[in-house]
């Protein structure tokens, strides 16, 4: 597993600075507004863009063929991809937690962050099996559509539920975020065996 994760890291190392700059800008926006919404929402995109960049590099390198020929089991290979996706989301979650602590209404901030953590998991859960099935290039259009849809939906729901002009009121504060997080976790739990099944039956 270490070898797979190290390879994934080396794939994105040349471009990680650009992602960091992007993240810092949105972190500052959220910090200045004392609202984690902007940062948490962009983390959904970054949390998928980073593993996608890694998988693009792997596709170009023929890494799937090399790793499987070298004896990496197909299950382990898929697990490596999911783990890297999770690790790509982790810094965003940690920084979101920092933002929560800096907010006046910490409970509301936490609810926002939890919602988008769930959205991030859902996005990864939807995208990874597609990439296993079609490869990064062929599924690129579909990936963009899924990402835009999830991002837009998550942002819209967030604004309508948590924003200053919220129109959905009266829900317990953590109802929607809790549901989204649970749905995200459940999506990953379903997505992983689907990804394993697809990859196990794929000719490389």
């Amino acid at each position: 597993m270490k070898g797979l994760l190290y390879k994934s890291w080396l794939n994105v190392k040349p471009v990680v600075l650009y992602y960091i700059i992007f993240v810092v800008v949105f972190f500052l926006v959220s910090l200045l507004n004392r609202d984690p919404l902007y940062f948490a929402a962009i983390c959904v995109m970054i949390g998928v863009a980073v593993p996608l960049a890694s998988m693009t590099s792997d596709d170009k390198d023929g890494w799937e063929e090399f790793a499987v020929a070298a004896g990496v089991s197909r299950t382990r290979f898929v697990l490596g991809r999911y783990l890297f996706a999770l690790l790509s989301e982790l810094p965003g979650w940690v920084l979101s937690a920092v933002l929560v602590l800096l907010c006046e209404d910490r409970l509301a901030a936490l609810a926002t962050v939890l919602f988008y953590c769930g959205a991030g998991l859902l996005t990864a859960a939807l995208l990874l099996p597609l990439v296993f099935r079609f490869g990064v290039e062929k599924s690129r259009v579909l990936l963009v559509l899924v990402m835009v849809f999830v991002f837009a939906a998550a942002l819209t729901v967030g604004i309508l539920t948590f924003g200053e002009d919220a129109i959905v009121t009266g829900l317990p504060l953590f109802a929607l975020p809790g549901a989204m997080l649970a749905f995200g976790v459940a999506s990953v739990a379903v997505s992983l065996p689907v990804g394993v099944h697809i990859f196990k039956n794929k000719d490389l």
Binding site: K7, E65, F66
Partner: peptide, 14 residues
């Protein structure tokens, strides 16, 4: 088993 899978079989970015 050591394998060489034709041309360009190694990660080129490394």
């Amino acid at each position: 088993i050591g394998a060489v899978l034709g041309e360009n079989c190694l990660p080129e970015s490394l």
